[in-house]
Design a protein around this nucleic acid. Structure first.
Length: 486
RNA sequence: GGCCCUAUCGUCUAACGGUUAGGACACAUGCUUUUCAAGCAUGGAACCCGGGUUCGAUUCCCGGUAGGGUCACCA
């Protein structure tokens, strides 16, 4: 008997492969059918007590990506049970700004319109002896007695699984009999959340880690009511530059203020999404569809990230560059016109529109264009610049040489036919040989300064191309006249 | 302070026991058609500390430290 039978080994190997394939297949189909039958439902539960915060936007984005990835339903739930602080204006701001970002939802509710559901739940708890009405002194007004409804806390140890962090365990005895309502028809946050999540058949609760310690309280209420437990996922909060909580004092927190400064919605969306999540592909610039395709809760980070405005600016520059030039020009014209008008500089539609490509490579955010324009940095395209005679010559170049260069360039330019001014490259060709021979800096600096009156500007050929032959020759002439007085 | 979470360049991160620790932003230098911007190239820059486990730890475990969260009649 041969102890080593190749045929037998081969059969064993084939059987092994076959069985592995069956198991893998089974697991796969099981997994797929599970997620199909799951019918995922998530929620956006902002409290309308302030303007749409970037944190609210992040919450919505993460929930949105997860839901869309799995073909789920999104519920917008306005958590306005705090009657004193909630307003319709804030609610409208949140809806408006999320929509602006490109986020949408399938169902909409307001907790203030659902008191009957909470009343029933609270009533049940009291009747079953799981909650009780407690008469105690008001914490808001000393000496005033109020009634408050508290949950009878069984004091169990609760462990829940977090999709981002794994198992988290709490001893709930220290929570005591916490308050769940001010009255049967006046629920407090935890009660309303638990009742709504169950009623709206929420399957996944994706929220900031500031809610981790709220979770055991909510599970306690769920258990008292006999409601199912959704799956939890707590993502990290983002921080200010000094790693403290991002607040109004540490920078802008309202989505609307980024919008007003001229950040583009896809840029803010992209930045906010990737601030707490990395796409498996490693891509940083992602469209909404690409993000949906790549999103997995497992890839959401565990540690808090600093909100970096520089990185946001980088994203925004990218999206600004990607804008169709026509759309860009429309907006830049608007900003330019407002600025010029405010300072009484004559408007020229043709110049403004051709200026758009030059502006586009100089700004990351619209706000920068406003700043530049208001500082008069683009005025020379529309009006004669004011020249400071001592700035005309390049450093270490004599006035005589500068005059000579400007006269030579002026002649080269005036000898050229109008047609040569149609293209920046042609204009460059007119003076390039001369400038190279005589020293580019010595020739081109005075030319550029004569045309712009600015120490910083686009190159002289671009400027000549825009303002045209006549204006260019006139400005060079002005500079020469000024130099003759030195 | 109790409880909970977290810990890689200045910042955002990759790594899933063995890598010259990778990328992006920012920064520095150089190049390109003077200036500025953009672009391109190059460069400096990190595993919080101490114990284990292991042939071997940035990676796993424990402790410390630090940061964050939360301890409402707000959400």
């Amino acid at each position: 008997m041969n102890p080593y039978d190749p045929m037998r080994e081969w059969i064993i190997y084939v059987q092994y492969i076959y069985i592995t394939a069956i198991i893998t297949n089974f697991a796969d189909s099981f997994g797929v059918s599970l997620s199909r039958g799951m019918n995922i439902r998530v929620r956006f539960p902002p409290s309308p007590t302030g303007f749409c915060h970037v944190g609210t936007a992040r919450m919505a984005i993460l929930n949105y990506l997860f839901a869309k990835k799995h073909g789920g339903i999104i519920v917008f739930r306005s958590e306005d049970t705090d009657k004193e602080r909630s307003t319709k204006e804030f609610e409208a701001d949140i809806i408006d700004n999320l929509t602006w970002l490109g986020i949408s939802w399938d169902e909409f509710y307001r907790q203030s319109e659902r008191t009957e559901i909470y009343r029933a739940a609270i009533h049940t708890l009291i009747v079953q002896g799981k909650a009780y009405v407690s008469e105690e002194e008001s914490k808001k007004e000393a000496g005033v007695m109020v009634k408050i409804i508290r949950l009878k806390n069984p004091g169990t140890t609760i462990t829940f699984t977090d999709a981002i962090r794994g198992d988290i365990t709490f001893d709930t005895t220290e929570l005591g009999d916490f308050a769940i309502a001010r009255a049967e028809d006046d629920p407090l946050y935890h009660l309303a959340v638990v009742v709504d999540d169950a009623d709206m058949r929420i399957t996944h609760v994706i929220r900031g880690e500031d809610h981790i310690s709220n979770t055991p309280r909510q599970i306690l209420i769920q258990e008292a009511l006999g409601l199912p437990r959704p799956l939890y996922a707590h993502y990290p909060l983002h921080l200010a530059a000094d790693r403290s909580k991002l607040s109004k004092r540490k920078g802008d927190v309202a989505v609307r203020s980024y919008r007003e400064k001229g950040y583009l919605a896809p840029a803010l969306l992209n930045y906010l999404a990737t601030l707490g999540w990395t796409a498996p592909s490693g891509k940083e610039i992602l469209s909404l569809d690409e993000m949906i395709g790549e999103f997995e809760l497992a890839d959401v980070h565990k540690n808090g990230a600093v909100f970096d405005i520089e990185k946001l600016n980088w994203f925004n520059r990218h999206y600004l560059q990607a804008l169709p030039l026509r759309d860009f020009a429309l907006e830049s014209d608007k900003i330019l016109q407002t600025s010029l008008h405010a300072r009484g500089v004559a408007w020229n539609e043709r110049i403004a529109t051709s200026l758009a490509p030059l502006i586009r490579e100089r700004i990351a955010v619209w706000e920068e264009l406003r700043t530049f324009a208001d500082a008069g940095e683009f005025d020379f395209f529309f009006a004669e610049p004011k020249l400071e005679p001592t700035y005309i010559a390049q450093k270490k170049v004599s006035t005589e040489d500068t005059v000579r260069h400007l006269q030579s360039v002026k002649k080269l330019l005036s000898d050229a036919p109008e047609g040569a001014y149609n293209d920046t490259e042609n204009i460059k060709a007119l003076v390039w040989e001369y400038a190279s021979r005589e020293g580019r800096g010595a020739v081109l600096w005075p030319l550029r300064y004569a045309l712009t009156g600015q120490e910083r500007s686009p190159d002289p050929f671009e400027v000549i191309h825009l303002i045209g032959k006549e204006a260019s020759l006139r400005r060079i002439g002005t500079a020469l006249a000024l130099l003759s007085h030195i």
